[in-house]
């Protein structure tokens, strides 16, 4: 694939998009796992909300 004289700029753009989106994705997944873990820890300790939802 020949991207012409400005190939570096094209790759840099796609690289930037990939980087930012991967960071966002990894952060979201990591955060989700962490919240689930905390929730399980609390539930195992027998903590319940009064409303018992």
């Amino acid at each position: 694939m020949d991207l012409g004289p400005h190939a570096a700029f094209i790759w840099a753009s796609y690289g930037a998009v990939a980087f930012v989106l991967v960071v966002l994705l990894v952060w979201l997944i990591w955060d989700g796992r962490r919240q689930l873990r905390l929730l399980h820890e609390l539930e195992q300790r027998g903590v319940r909300r009064r409303s018992g939802r």
């Binding site: 989106l21 994705l25 979201l28 905390l38 929730l39 609390l42 909300r49």
Partner: peptide, 30 residues
């Protein structure tokens, strides 16, 4: 669609975070 998926995931995390917080409050109260 990716935006919507990321947004939905973020919202799910936030709901969970609020549950964790509420449970912690309940624990302290108990």
């Amino acid at each position: 669609i990716l935006f919507l998926a990321l947004h939905m995931k973020g919202m799910r995390n936030e709901v969970l975070r609020r549950r964790v917080k509420a449970l912690r409050m309940a624990e302290v109260e108990q």
